[in-house]
Amino acid sequence: MTPILKQFLAKSIDFRAAMFREIKEIPFTDETEYQILATLIMADISSEYWEAIHALAYAESFIPAVSLLRLQYESLLRAYWLYYCAKNERISELHQPLDEKNVRSIENHMPNVKEMLVDLDKAVIAGKLHPKSVQMFQEFREMHNQPANSFVHSGMHAFNRQREGFIEPMFIQIVQNANGLEALNAMLQGLLCDSEGWLSLYIVRLQHQYLDCLPMQIENIVQQFYRENAPPL
């Protein structure tokens, strides 16, 4: 691992810490307790994937890091869906004891990625959710779904990358995408914590301060981080 990648990973950790620093106890009522809890549990799962991707980056394990990016995305998408779209019966099912009957019931009723995106679009139309968040989820899926499937299922993307070896700017790009998802995670929790919206503004400002931690094209990554000492692509 080069010093460039080490510095980038350290800055990414600083970025995440800064985003969550002001997020304190999230309020709830008797009516919203289960919904808030379900949302936060799923958001926490997504954050664990972010942590795992960074650990894999330090270990220079490219293929599992790419694979986990898809899982980070899907768990965060579900967190948004649980908060903005899920009906009370779906929330209640999630909180039932873990047994075969309950697992079958919830798995049969939970929407897939495409369905969750459709539901979130409806939430945007209803004025419940800012369209930018859903747009970012949709763009991520359009750009990364096919190659992510290949990595997850050991397809040609995974085979070729293992054969050729990972390219460091590509690793930076993967972590940047993980950081972008974690920024959406922080935005969601900021909204849950602060109905006035100042936390959202704080997180947006942080994103401007840490722009090089957020998704970029490979060409921009090379220019930003490597300049004249760029590794071959």
Rank of each mutant, 00 (worst) to 15 (best):
E107K: 14
H109R: 15
H109S: 13
H109L: 04
P111I: 05
P111R: 03
N112F: 14
V113S: 02
K114Q: 09
E115Q: 15
L117V: 04
L117C: 03
V118C: 01
D119C: 07
D119I: 08
L120H: 10
D121A: 03
D121H: 12
D121N: 13
A123Q: 04
V124A: 00
V124I: 06
A126L: 10
A126P: 01
A126C: 03
A126Q: 14
G127E: 03
G127D: 01
K128W: 02
L129F: 11
H130A: 13
K132V: 01
S133T: 15
S133I: 15
Q135P: 01
Q135Y: 11
Q135E: 13
Q135K: 14
M136H: 08
F137I: 07
E139F: 01
F140T: 07
E142I: 03
E142K: 14
E142R: 09
M143F: 07
M143H: 03
M143N: 04
Q146T: 12
P147M: 09
P147D: 07
P147K: 11
P147C: 11
P147Y: 13
A148L: 05
N149H: 15
S150F: 08
S150N: 05
S150D: 13
S150K: 04
F151D: 07
F151Q: 03
H153K: 00
S154G: 08
S154H: 10
F159I: 10
R161N: 09
R161Y: 08
R161L: 11
Q162T: 04
Q162L: 10
Q162D: 02
E164C: 04
E164W: 02
E164T: 03
G165C: 09
F166Q: 06
F166A: 10
P169W: 09
F171N: 12
V175H: 06
N177S: 08
A178L: 03
G180L: 11
L181H: 05
A183I: 00
L184P: 04
N185T: 06
M187P: 02
Q189E: 14
Q189C: 10
Q189I: 08
L191N: 10
L191R: 14
L192T: 00
L192N: 08
D194N: 15
D194R: 08
D194Y: 05
S195N: 13
S195E: 15
E196Q: 12
E196L: 03
E196P: 00
G197H: 11
G197E: 11
G197R: 12
L199I: 14
L199D: 04
S200E: 14
L201P: 03
L201C: 09
L201T: 15
Y202G: 01
Y202A: 01
V204A: 09
V204Q: 12
V204S: 08
L206F: 01
L206A: 09
Q207A: 14
Q209D: 15
Q209N: 12
Y210W: 05
L211I: 04
D212C: 07
L214D: 10
L214G: 10
P215W: 05
Q217S: 14
I218Q: 01
E219S: 14
I221D: 02
I221V: 13
I221T: 05
V222H: 04
